[in-house]
Amino acid sequence: MAYVIIGTCVNDAACVPVCPVDCIYPRPGDADFATADMLFIDPDECVNCNACAEACPVGAVLPEQNLPPHLSRYKDINAEFARGVKA
C-alpha cells in the first residue's frame, strides 16, 4: 500500500518538504523538475503517513486503495516513474 499522486497535480511541491522519507520526485532543484507534468510517489519508500495528502492544496494525493477505478492507472504511473528515477 502507498499513496499515489494523480494527474491534477500542479507541481507546487507542497508535498515534498513534508514527506518524512523524501519519496516524492522530482524535487525542486532536480534537472527534470521544470519539465515534469506532475510529481510521483515511490511506492516502495512511502510510509503511508498521509502528510502529503494533507499538504496538497488541490487534493491530488490519494491512498492507493481509495483510488476510483478511472484513476487506478496512476498507481502504475507513479511506480514506473519512481523506478525510472532510481535506475
Partner: peptide, 9 residues
C-alpha cells in the same frame, strides 16, 4: 517499521 515522521527525520 511502517511508521516514521518528520520529527525523527
Amino acid at each position: 517499521w511502517g511508521d516514521f515522521c518528520r520529527k525523527g527525520k
